[in-house]
Design a protein around this nucleic acid. Structure first.
Lengths: 140, 140
DNA sequence: TTAAATGCAAAGAATTTGCATAACA
DNA sequence: TGTTATGCAAATTCTTTGCATTTAA
């Protein structure tokens, strides 16, 4: 997934390509990791200072509709956005905020079990899981 | 855990027993299920109309510090509070909002695995897990 | 030219905080 | 009497929305 792909997808869905939008997409692709809306607007502002946070939110929403990105909620912190490809489950330490990324496969058994028992299909990606990292666990 | 126990615990920690506080504790104990701060203040206001939402929040925080209650965050909805004893994991349907409660045991294997692999102790109770109930899953 | 996107300010929702007053102990 | 707790309003944080203006196609 590169800039051209994203632009094509947008055009295909009747979207227009503005400077703000292109800059947002570029920054998003350049950010190797997940990123918050706030961080993203800072990157974009370096080139286009006028771009507003609300524009970033609107574009993130648009890109998520197209299935290009996803967002995940963290504890009491702002949501993070990442490319659809990079799927992992986020574990956040409630004490120190450390983030660990776990492969999805680790959750396959419990997912199957929940589906079987309750008919529930869990989306482990929409929320980060809270807990304690090894260091903070020992301290408490 | 009854009213007397809670009051004792509060007193033991230097807390005072006001009318508002007693009413909050009673309502909390009367609510068989989990309850939001907003719902709780409505119950309390029936007897003491002057009690303010912020007082409820402060008391909930206090009771949580004493280990009497816990709270869980739901999707984009307000947090729910429940007695420490009633522990289960909340699954919320992101489409229809339906809530299913799963026993903690179902998550023991994945908890162990995460501890072993990443040293992370997951607290599955602090956040509800999002997903789709059987009905909404089939529709989409 | 016209529908979509933007910038800005303002609203929302849930929760927290500052502060003067009230009320337990 | 001296804290602790309360009520109220105002602040916070993240995100969304209304609206007039700009801009891409």
């Amino acid at each position: 997934m590169n800039e051209t792909d994203v632009i094509s997808a947008l055009r295909f869905h009747g979207g227009r390509v503005t400077k703000a939008r292109r800059a947002i997409i570029q920054s998003l692709l350049n950010a190797k990791n997940h990123i918050t809306a706030e961080e993203l607007v800072l990157m974009v502002k370096q080139k286009y200072p006028a771009v507003h946070l609300s524009t970033v939110y609107r574009n993130l929403e648009e890109l998520e509709k197209l299935g290009i990105i996803r967002h995940t909620h963290f504890l009491h912190s702002p949501a993070i956005y990442h490319l659809e490809g990079q799927i992992h489950i986020h574990l956040v330490c409630e004490i120190c905020g450390k983030i660990v990324e776990s492969p999805v496969e680790l959750f396959s058994p419990v997912s199957r079990e929940l589906k079987k028992t309750f008919g529930f299909s869990i989306n482990f990606r929409h929320f980060a899981l809270a807990g304690r990292c090894s260091a903070c666990y020992e301290d408490n």
